[in-house]
Simulated assay, not measured.
Amino acid sequence: MSEKKDLRGYTGTRKKPPRDAAEKLLELAAAGYNKKGLAYRLGTTVETLNKWLELYPELKQAMDEGREREHNALFTALFDSATKGGNVAAAIFLLKARHGYREGDQAEIANRVSVVFEMPGAMKLEDFTKDVTPRGGERGHD
Rank of each mutant, 00 (worst) to 15 (best):
Y33N: 15
D80T: 14
T133C: 05
K5L: 00
R112V: 15
T11H: 12
K84G: 03
G140M: 02
K5D: 00
E103P: 04
G104C: 02
R41A: 15
A73E: 07
R67T: 07
K4C: 12
D142A: 10
E54C: 02
L95T: 00
V46E: 02
V88S: 12
M119H: 14
A31V: 13
V116F: 09
Y10Q: 07
T133I: 06
T44A: 08
H71V: 11
L125S: 14
D131P: 03
K35C: 02
E47Y: 03
T44Y: 08
Y56T: 06
D127N: 04
K36A: 13
R112G: 13
K51S: 06
L42G: 15
A82N: 01
K60R: 12
M123Y: 09
P18C: 03
K96S: 04
M63S: 05
E65A: 05
P120F: 07
K35P: 14
L28V: 12
R19F: 03
T83R: 02
E58T: 07
P17V: 04
H71N: 12
S2N: 07
L125M: 11
A21M: 00
R139N: 06
G85Q: 04
M119F: 13
A29G: 11
D20R: 01
V88D: 07
R135P: 01
L74G: 10
Q106Y: 08
V88C: 08
S114R: 15
E27I: 08
N111E: 15
L125Y: 13
T48G: 02
L38V: 15
N87I: 05
P134R: 01
T13A: 10
E47T: 13
E118F: 07
R14C: 05
D64Y: 03
Y33K: 15
I109C: 08
I109T: 15
R14G: 02
F79T: 10
T76I: 15
L28Y: 11
K5I: 01
N72G: 06
G9K: 00
P17F: 00
E3D: 06
H71K: 11
F75V: 05
R139D: 03
A22F: 02
M63N: 03
A77M: 12
G85P: 01
